[in-house]
Simulated scan of single mutants.
Amino acid sequence: MATLGTRLFTWLNGELVGRDEEGNSYFRQKGGGTVHRDSLRRERRWVIYADGPDEASRVPPEWHAWLHHWSNETPPAEGIARRTWMKDHQHNLSGTGQAYRPPGHTLLGGKRDRATGDYEAWSPE
Protein backbone atom coordinates (compact mmCIF):
# COMPACT_ATOMS: atom_id res chain seq x y z
CA MET A 1 0.00 0.00 0.00
CA ALA A 2 1.48 3.33 -1.04
CA THR A 3 2.04 5.92 1.63
CA LEU A 4 0.17 9.20 1.65
CA GLY A 5 3.31 10.99 0.46
CA THR A 6 3.73 8.60 -2.48
CA ARG A 7 0.09 8.98 -3.48
CA LEU A 8 0.34 12.78 -3.27
CA PHE A 9 3.57 12.81 -5.30
CA THR A 10 1.95 10.53 -7.89
CA TRP A 11 -1.15 12.70 -8.10
CA LEU A 12 0.92 15.86 -8.61
CA ASN A 13 3.75 14.52 -10.76
CA GLY A 14 2.76 11.15 -12.17
CA GLU A 15 1.45 10.11 -15.55
CA LEU A 16 -0.24 6.68 -15.66
CA VAL A 17 1.45 4.49 -18.26
CA GLY A 18 -0.34 1.20 -17.72
CA ARG A 19 -1.45 -1.60 -15.43
CA ASP A 20 -0.47 -5.25 -15.25
CA GLU A 21 -2.75 -8.27 -14.87
CA GLU A 22 -2.46 -8.06 -11.09
CA GLY A 23 -3.71 -4.48 -10.97
CA ASN A 24 -0.38 -2.78 -10.21
CA SER A 25 -0.20 0.73 -11.72
CA TYR A 26 2.92 2.04 -13.48
CA PHE A 27 3.78 5.71 -13.67
CA ARG A 28 6.37 8.05 -15.08
CA GLN A 29 7.17 11.68 -14.42
CA LYS A 30 4.85 14.02 -16.32
CA GLY A 31 6.70 15.26 -19.36
CA GLY A 32 9.29 12.52 -18.78
CA GLY A 33 10.28 12.43 -22.43
CA THR A 34 11.91 15.87 -22.16
CA VAL A 35 15.25 14.58 -20.83
CA HIS A 36 17.97 15.32 -23.39
CA ARG A 37 19.46 12.25 -25.10
CA ASP A 38 23.00 13.19 -23.98
CA SER A 39 21.95 13.66 -20.36
CA LEU A 40 22.77 11.10 -17.70
CA ARG A 41 19.36 11.73 -16.16
CA ARG A 42 16.54 9.43 -17.09
CA GLU A 43 12.82 9.84 -16.65
CA ARG A 44 11.54 8.75 -13.27
CA ARG A 45 9.44 5.58 -13.31
CA TRP A 46 7.65 3.85 -10.44
CA VAL A 47 4.96 1.37 -9.50
CA ILE A 48 2.03 1.60 -7.09
CA TYR A 49 1.10 -1.91 -6.00
CA ALA A 50 -2.47 -3.13 -5.91
CA ASP A 51 -3.78 -4.83 -2.77
CA GLY A 52 -1.19 -6.80 -0.87
CA PRO A 53 2.36 -6.18 0.25
CA ASP A 54 4.73 -3.82 -1.57
CA GLU A 55 7.00 -6.59 -2.82
CA ALA A 56 9.25 -6.18 -5.86
CA SER A 57 8.69 -9.80 -6.92
CA ARG A 58 5.08 -8.82 -7.70
CA VAL A 59 6.30 -6.94 -10.78
CA PRO A 60 6.16 -9.13 -13.92
CA PRO A 61 9.34 -9.32 -16.05
CA GLU A 62 8.03 -7.18 -18.90
CA TRP A 63 7.20 -4.31 -16.53
CA HIS A 64 10.46 -4.82 -14.63
CA ALA A 65 12.32 -4.18 -17.89
CA TRP A 66 10.39 -0.94 -18.41
CA LEU A 67 10.89 0.25 -14.81
CA HIS A 68 14.66 -0.25 -15.04
CA HIS A 69 14.99 1.42 -18.45
CA TRP A 70 15.95 -1.82 -20.22
CA SER A 71 13.06 -1.10 -22.55
CA ASN A 72 11.36 2.12 -23.50
CA GLU A 73 8.35 0.28 -24.88
CA THR A 74 5.56 -0.32 -22.40
CA PRO A 75 4.11 -3.83 -22.49
CA PRO A 76 0.86 -4.13 -24.45
CA ALA A 77 -2.36 -3.89 -22.43
CA GLU A 78 -3.32 -7.45 -23.41
CA GLY A 79 0.02 -8.76 -22.16
CA ILE A 80 2.98 -10.18 -24.01
CA ALA A 81 2.70 -13.11 -26.40
CA ARG A 82 3.11 -16.29 -24.39
CA ARG A 83 5.49 -18.97 -25.62
CA THR A 84 5.28 -22.64 -24.73
CA TRP A 85 8.44 -22.53 -22.62
CA MET A 86 7.34 -19.54 -20.53
CA LYS A 87 6.16 -20.12 -16.97
CA ASP A 88 3.61 -18.01 -15.15
CA HIS A 89 5.02 -15.26 -12.98
CA GLN A 90 5.47 -16.36 -9.37
CA HIS A 91 6.00 -14.17 -6.33
CA ASN A 92 8.92 -14.62 -3.96
CA LEU A 93 7.90 -17.48 -1.67
CA SER A 94 10.80 -17.13 0.79
CA GLY A 95 9.61 -17.27 4.37
CA THR A 96 6.37 -19.02 3.48
CA GLY A 97 5.31 -22.65 3.75
CA GLN A 98 5.65 -22.98 -0.02
CA ALA A 99 9.32 -21.95 -0.11
CA TYR A 100 11.80 -24.41 -1.60
CA ARG A 101 13.48 -26.64 0.96
CA PRO A 102 16.28 -28.87 -0.25
CA PRO A 103 16.61 -32.47 0.89
CA GLY A 104 17.95 -32.56 4.44
CA HIS A 105 16.37 -29.27 5.47
CA THR A 106 15.61 -29.15 9.20
CA LEU A 107 11.91 -28.58 8.54
CA LEU A 108 11.85 -31.77 6.45
CA GLY A 109 13.26 -33.93 9.22
CA GLY A 110 16.89 -32.93 8.83
CA LYS A 111 17.96 -36.17 7.15
CA ARG A 112 19.46 -36.47 3.73
CA ASP A 113 20.77 -39.25 1.58
CA ARG A 114 24.20 -40.58 2.46
CA ALA A 115 27.12 -39.59 0.27
CA THR A 116 27.64 -41.94 -2.66
CA GLY A 117 31.37 -42.33 -2.15
CA ASP A 118 32.42 -39.77 -4.73
CA TYR A 119 33.00 -37.12 -2.07
CA GLU A 120 36.19 -36.85 -0.10
CA ALA A 121 36.36 -34.28 2.67
CA TRP A 122 39.30 -31.90 2.60
CA SER A 123 41.57 -31.87 5.57
CA PRO A 124 44.62 -29.62 6.05
CA GLU A 125 47.83 -31.59 6.30
Rank of each mutant, 00 (worst) to 15 (best):
G5Y: 12
P76A: 07
R83K: 15
P60M: 11
T3V: 06
P124C: 01
T74L: 01
L107K: 07
G110A: 10
L12P: 00
N72C: 10
T6V: 14
S39E: 00
H69S: 14
P102H: 14
L108R: 12
Y26M: 09
R37C: 03
W11L: 08
P103W: 10
G109T: 06
R58P: 00
E125K: 00
G109V: 05
R114N: 06
A56W: 02
H105V: 01
L8N: 10
W63G: 00
P103E: 15
W63P: 01
A115C: 06
M86F: 13
Q29W: 02
S39L: 08
W46N: 14
E43L: 08
D88Q: 14
E43G: 04
D54E: 15
Q98P: 03
L67G: 04
K30C: 06
V47K: 05
A56K: 08
K111R: 15
L8H: 08
L107F: 01
G110C: 09
L67K: 05
G32P: 01
L108H: 09
W70P: 10
P102D: 13
E21G: 08
G97A: 11
L12N: 01
R7S: 05
L107P: 00
R42M: 12
R112F: 00
Q29P: 04
L40F: 13
E21S: 12
R45P: 11
I48N: 08
T10A: 04
G23N: 01
N72M: 12
H64G: 06
E78W: 02
Y49W: 13
E125H: 01
R42F: 11
G104H: 02
E43I: 07
L40R: 10
G104I: 02
G52D: 07
T106N: 06
I48Q: 09
G32K: 04
N92K: 01
N13T: 01
A50T: 13
G109E: 05
G31A: 07
F9R: 05
Q29T: 11
V59D: 00
G23S: 08
W70C: 13
Y100Q: 00
D38R: 09
G52T: 07
P60D: 04
G5A: 15
K111M: 08
A99H: 10
P75V: 02
P75E: 06
S71W: 03
G23W: 02
A77H: 00
N92L: 10
D51P: 02
V35R: 04
N24E: 04
E73S: 13
A115Q: 01
W122K: 00
A121L: 00
G110Q: 11
Q90I: 14
E15L: 10
D51S: 12
P61I: 03
V17G: 04
S94L: 13
A115R: 06
D118Y: 04
N92I: 05
S25R: 15
K111S: 09
G52I: 06
S71M: 07
L67C: 08
G97I: 06
D88V: 14
Y119W: 03
W70T: 09
T84K: 12
M1V: 11
R19C: 11
D113A: 12
D51N: 12
T106C: 07
T106A: 05
E43K: 08
R37I: 02
H64C: 04
G97D: 15
T116D: 10
H105G: 03
G110F: 00
